[in-house]
């Protein structure tokens, strides 16, 4: 039994992938504008700002105003990208996004860094684990959570070409970069990373690399894992989820998010409707985070390859 493997071409942060994508968009599309709420460096928006000062809007520490201004800019034909931490991009401005962006059908790209527990030392006030749920519940909102630098860059380019509101979620730490450089990014399409027959691992964001590591460990134990990278949580590629569940008969979902409201719930709904299948969840367990290094936190909150392996063995036994 051989298994496809992936090479880490060097650790890089996903937020830098966003910055690289935004820089490229700035050169290619005059309608792209960027807004930031006093976190330009953290969001890697400096280069866009330097290249196009007239198209960069520093709004200060005023996220609600930022979302409203972005909505207004779309009326004049602009394609605004807002940038701040995920916590301040969602929970803090939920009503502004709901009324001025989603309900109004505005073409705003809400780009959110430092998502999840890997934000690290700043602790729970800044570590949002509820944002996917908040955003996916909004009618018409596309929700994307990318896994590495290359995919985040590709997603940034892709959402500019998509008409409609988008929530793009990425993170702070440097993580393995393994998807193709300048790869294609198809909104709403699952990416099959590894073919397998015993269990399906459906992962998003930083957990995708961990899923690949888990597949190696499982392979050594004689369990063939299929690994699917879901970058677009909404709309979910239901066809890919159901097809893989039919093939393997059990599923583990993995995400850096609360099990309530996350990818796992979307997958569970899909399976309940179309192909009821045993499923286990790698996610935070309805809890806030805390201070610590990203690696310590991923370990403590059960968000790594070992946790995926454990859930995979458990779900295989449930078949």
């Amino acid at each position: 039994m051989t298994m496809k493997t992936y090479t880490n071409t060097g650790n890089k942060d996903t937020r830098s992938g966003f910055g690289a994508g935004l820089t490229q968009l700035g050169k290619e599309n005059d309608n792209v504008v960027a807004l930031c709420a006093d976190l330009t460096g953290s969001l890697k928006m400096d280069e866009f700002k330097a290249n196009h000062p007239e198209r960069f809007f520093q709004v200060g520490i005023a996220e609600a105003n930022m979302i409203g201004i972005a909505a207004g800019l779309t009326i004049g034909g602009k394609v605004p990208f807002t940038g701040t931490f995920a916590n301040f991009s969602t929970g803090r401005v939920y009503d502004q996004i709901r009324q001025s962006v989603a309900y109004s059908g505005k073409n705003v790209k809400i780009c959110a860094s430092h998502a999840g527990i890997t934000l690290g030392e700043d602790g729970a006030t800044h570590q949002i684990l509820e944002d996917i749920g908040l955003m996916k519940m909004l009618p018409g909102m596309t929700v994307i959570n990318t896994c590495d630098f290359n995919q985040t860059k590709a997603a940034t380019l892709a959402i500019a070409a998509h008409e409609g509101p988008v929530y793009l979620r990425f993170g702070r730490p440097k993580v393995p970069n393994f998807t193709p450089e300048n790869g294609t990014f198809e909104l709403g399409k699952a990416v099959h990373l590894i073919e397998g027959s015993d269990v399906t691992i459906i992962a998003t964001g930083h957990l995708v690399w961990e899923a690949l590591e888990a597949a190696k460990i499982l392979h050594d134990k004689g369990i063939s894992a299929e690994v699917i990278n879901i970058h677009t949580i909404k709309p979910l590629d239901e066809e890919a989820v159901v097809a893989s569940a039919k093939k393997t008969g059990c599923v583990v979902t993995a995400e850096e998010h609360n099990f309530l409201g996350g990818l796992g719930e979307s997958v569970a709904r899909t399976l309940a409707l179309h192909y009821p299948t045993p499923q286990e969840f790698v996610a935070t367990n309805d809890t806030f985070g805390e201070s610590g290094t990203p690696a310590q936190l991923m370990d403590k909150y059960g968000l790594n390859a070992e946790a995926i392996v454990s859930k995979a063995r458990k779900v295989v036994a449930r078949k």
Binding site: M66, G72, G77
Partner: peptide, 27 residues
């Protein structure tokens, strides 16, 4: 109608965005 309103306090921000777009578009 160019924006939904009802939940209060959002219109000024939207108007500023539209005003910024006018400036960019030299309108």
């Amino acid at each position: 109608v160019r924006i939904a309103s009802g939940s209060l306090g959002q219109g000024m921000s939207v108007a500023i965005g539209a005003a910024e777009a006018k400036k960019l578009n030299q309108d």
